[in-house]
Design a protein around this nucleic acid. Structure first.
Lengths: 139, 139
DNA sequence: GTATCAATGGGACACAGTATCATTCCCCAC
DNA sequence: GTGGGGAATGATACTGTGTCCCATTGATAC
């Protein structure tokens, strides 16, 4: 089963309607080979309203099908979530690639920090910026 | 010596000019008792151009006098940095308060995650969202 | 097949931030 | 203290990102 099929199933299972625009967005996302902006996505889907693309991406974020990637400069890109679960990002400032990773020790350290400050944690984000292995091999 | 004086010294020491608009922004920031948006700051400084407020905040971020606080909903606020050094944020989703904290174990966990992925780290961000001790005591 | 109501499209709008450029004014040299 | 050079400013236009509104469409349950 393709990732697009998995995602349409996920939409249907959660009570959302399977409309043509949503299918088109899912297909475009599956075809993207790097993190994208909404404008880029919208340009690839000229027959779909811009507002619908925004709405769909927001929905897919809630379903953990897509994740929001905050960049170092304050910009934002989106990417299909590979794991579909909580994770963090390694963001290459040279080629812009984004790698998901999960690290229980990192999550534990975050929980300990919250506890130490008597803070009731209900979410967190962590982004790591630098150079990916591929770019390190270049001059 | 006041925090405003410390900051003007920091500006002067780094070769930036001590202009009236910059002093005004520094004073407004010193007087803010909670994280602010640029619009709020700009409204409090009607005689200072909006572009200048943006430019000054950007400069103060570089000097670690002000820090950018990304919110859970994608919004952004700014706050005077208490420590003037690298730190993370505890952001209360109820009252909007922001608490700085430093935690070497958290930074180490982040470095280990990067190393494990053969990633050359040069920066990171970590934001913790939840309820501050004060809001926990309310119903 | 049909009714219902979620979803859509498209434009206006809101907010965050940058670019441009003529004018101002800080700071250093003298 | 004065004058010149260049950094900083202010006004405005512009870009990017995202939301709101509302008349129309269409997926799903019956």
């Amino acid at each position: 089963m393709s990732t697009t099929e998995q995602s349409t199933d996920r939409l249907g299972d959660t009570g959302y309607r399977l409309t043509a625009p949503r299918r088109a967005v899912l297909e475009a996302i599956a075809g993207a080979n790097r993190p994208f902006t909404i404008e880029e996505l919208s340009d690839r889907l000229p027959n779909i309203g811009r507002a619908t693309v925004f709405r769909t991406i927001k929905l897919l974020q809630e379903l953990d099908i897509v994740c929001r990637v905050p960049l170092e400069d304050g910009g934002v890109r989106y990417e299909r979530s590979r794991s579909g679960r909580h994770h963090h990002h390694l963001i290459c400032s040279e080629c812009g690639s984004v790698t998901e990773f999960s690290d229980p020790t990192l999550d534990e350290a975050i929980e300990r920090s919250a506890t130490a400050a008597s803070f009731e944690l209900d979410g967190h984000s962590a982004e790591l910026y630098g150079r990916c292995p591929t770019c390190q091999r270049l001059p």
